[in-house]
Amino acid sequence: MRKPGSRRSRQRRLGDALAAVLALLASAAADAQCEELRPFKIVGDAIPAALTETAGDATRGRAIILDRRLGACLLCHTGPFPEEKFQGTLAPDLTGAGSRWSEGELRLRLVDPTRLNPQTTMPAYYRVEGLTRVAQAWRGKPVLTAEQIEDVVAFLSSLRD
């Protein structure tokens, strides 16, 4: 029988503690990584480069626009969505958005429209800095992920007059 204070058991306990600390650090790093925004570059009134390597999916983008817990775009906007009876009248109609704006212009208008108009009613969908009293559940998180931004850009670009 080994005594509790023996060298082997102390070594093992030290090993366990070390493993636990490393696991904690790794998960913290993963959290930080998943919440850190992808860098983007504004050129003129656009973000020409996509935020992700994989292209956005227009079908998913359409669903994000309609989903009140994701884009919730139709709270304020109207658009070509016959299944949504209640659409907002605060903001421009999204019909033909892809004819009016390039992909890059749409991307900046989603990511942070206050860069173009500080007084705009449109929320910044990919920004976590410079916000006030954000509720605990949403703190440090953008409204949409980089992938979701690209999905919405892909769908809006497909809306041609």
Partner: peptide, 12 residues
């Protein structure tokens, strides 16, 4: 302006 949606009472 406040919250993640970054709107003020006044804007609405």
């Amino acid at each position: 302006r406040e919250g993640q949606l970054n709107l003020s009472c006044s804007q609405c």
